[in-house]
């Protein structure tokens, strides 16, 4: 295992060290004293394990494809944005826009997530053990978003095909968001997935499922009120 200590060095230097270690064939890297720096671990394309021992700033693990990244502290905005595959686990909480526009992979947040969790998600899975802020799942195209605690206002606004699950209370649904009963397949998936990541989480059957009401998909003048509120 390679060890990199950030100390007083710049993000550019630290990321260069990570790339150097990967080029040397290292498959496990621990990065100490990340100091909430922004843009750590961006653009990693190898199936390696990287652990940031502490908190990280904006865009940690952004634009990755394949690695498993663990953050032992909390993460700033845009965690794992545009990830294509891999796994990102945050032991603490995350800032705004965690898992924004991810296309695949899994983002796991053991604490809470701030606003706009999983915004514009296009695939993959987002799991939050705690609660999330407002506008989670906004304009989600595909993928799954699971919040074991409470969801903030405007939850699942303007969805396409993303499936959202909430174990606690939903402060308010977004435009065109519709609550429906989880299917047996949903419940089985929730039970197995949550058992793997959050053993103490509610059981799958306790979750509400939120999907698109599809009234915003194509304009219909009979749904004018929905559009007035949405636009």
């Amino acid at each position: 295992m390679a060890e990199i200590t950030c100390g007083s060095r710049s993000t550019r230097e630290i990321n260069a060290d990570i790339r150097k270690a990967l080029a040397a064939g290292e498959r496990e890297i621990i990065v100490r004293e990340p100091g909430a720096r922004h843009n750590l671990g961006v653009g990693i394309l190898e199936p390696v394990r990287i652990r940031f021992a502490g908190s990280v700033g904006y865009y940690c693990a952004g634009l990755i494809d394949g690695p498993s990244i663990e953050i032992t502290g909390s993460a700033g905005w845009g965690l794992a944005e545009s990830m294509m595959s891999g796994e990102v686990v945050v032991r603490g909480s995350s800032g705004n826009g965690a898992a924004a526009a991810i296309r695949g992979g899994t983002v796991v947040i053991h604490g809470d997530a701030a606003a706009r969790l999983g915004v514009s998600i296009k695939g993959g899975t987002v799991l939050v053990a705690g609660s999330c802020g407002y506008m989670a799942g906004f304009m989600g195209q595909k993928g799954r978003l699971v919040v074991c605690g409470d969801a903030g206002d405007a939850f699942a606004d303007s969805l396409y095909e993303t499936a959202c699950f909430v174990g606690g209370r939903i402060q308010g649904l977004g435009t065109d968001a519709v609550v429906e009963a989880p299917t047996p397949e949903d419940i089985a998936w929730l039970d197995s997935t949550l058992a793997e990541y959050f053993p103490g989480a509610p059981r799958g059957k306790q979750f509400q499922k939120v999907v698109a009401g599809r009234k915003l998909w194509n304009f219909d003048k009979r749904e004018w009120k929905v559009w007035q509120e949405a636009l």
Binding site: T11, R12, N15, R19, H38, N39, V42, G43, G57, Y58, Y59, G62, L63, W77, G78
Partner: peptide, 11 residues
């Protein structure tokens, strides 16, 4: 910070 992220992603 976003601009810096794009720079990091493309070295």
């Amino acid at each position: 910070i976003k601009v810096e992220e794009l720079r990091e992603a493309t070295d």
